[in-house]
Amino acid sequence: MMAKKKKAYRLKHYLREELLPTTFCQGCGCGTVLNTYAQAIEELQINPKDIVSVTGIGCSSWIPSPYFKADTLHTTHGRAIAFATGVKIMKPEANVVVIAGDGDLAGIGGNHLIHAARRNVGLAVFLINNMIYGMTGGQVSPMTPLGDKTTTTPYGNPEYPFNIAEFVAAAGANYVARWTTYHVFPLMESIQKAMTKDGFSFVEILTQCPVSYGRRVGMRTGEEFLKYFKENTINSLKAKDMTPEEIGDKIIVGKIVERNRKEFTTILREMNEERRK
């Protein structure tokens, strides 16, 4: 067989190449998200100069920070949205993007998440939900399903997880959706929607962590997770005509909410301009 010439990665100009390869584990979904995100940016033709990535602490924060080449603020654990709010107010023309994990945004930083959604700040927030604290080795997170064994729930998780997407929708976000790393094309469209929609946009991206979570719940490979996501999800358009019994334990993917409340920094600017007259 002839040796195939290795093709260069088509989107690598969006990455800080000198920092590759990534530190992500084998089978991790973060690479899929990075690829999908870069593809979304490419199709939207957004100049990375006009993007500010703001992240917290955890594996998924490493998706843009440091790998995606744009102005990047890798902040303290849980606080990315607070930092991003400061950036957005002083740079309303920028695409301010927050990418962080479930521990970061739904756990330690939950308060900032709901208040940013309430204010309807023009941020695009991508919550990478791997249902675990992966970087620290697999401790229970606010998104870990009930009963699951983790390193800190050796007898099973006694807590219910958040329905974080519904929660953010209820808090007032302009756009909320949920997808998984299996649904890469609809996910990409959803990322594009979040990037272009005025106001607070939020996409929960279910992803796999075979190393720190999967192997303790019987899913040792990325493929097993993808299969699970494929077989256990229902599109929100279908789900709305189904009874709760019919939906059962299935995960609802797709658009959760879309509305057109005026964006926070726009209101703020208009009010301030009024004062300056």
């Binding site: 500010v52 703001v54 102005d71 603020l73 902040t75 303290t76 606080r79 607070a82 930092f83 991003a84 709010t85 400061g86 950036v87 107010i89 002083m90 740079k91 920028a94 308060n111 900032h112 208040h115 703020l268 301030n272």
Partner: peptide, 22 residues
């Protein structure tokens, strides 16, 4: 611009973010 944040952690975060915006 003035903003009242949800707590002091967020206030400190916001002023750092805004500082990087110039």
């Amino acid at each position: 611009v003035y903003i009242q944040m949800e707590d002091e952690i967020a206030s400190m975060g916001a002023i750092i973010g805004a500082s990087w915006a110039g």
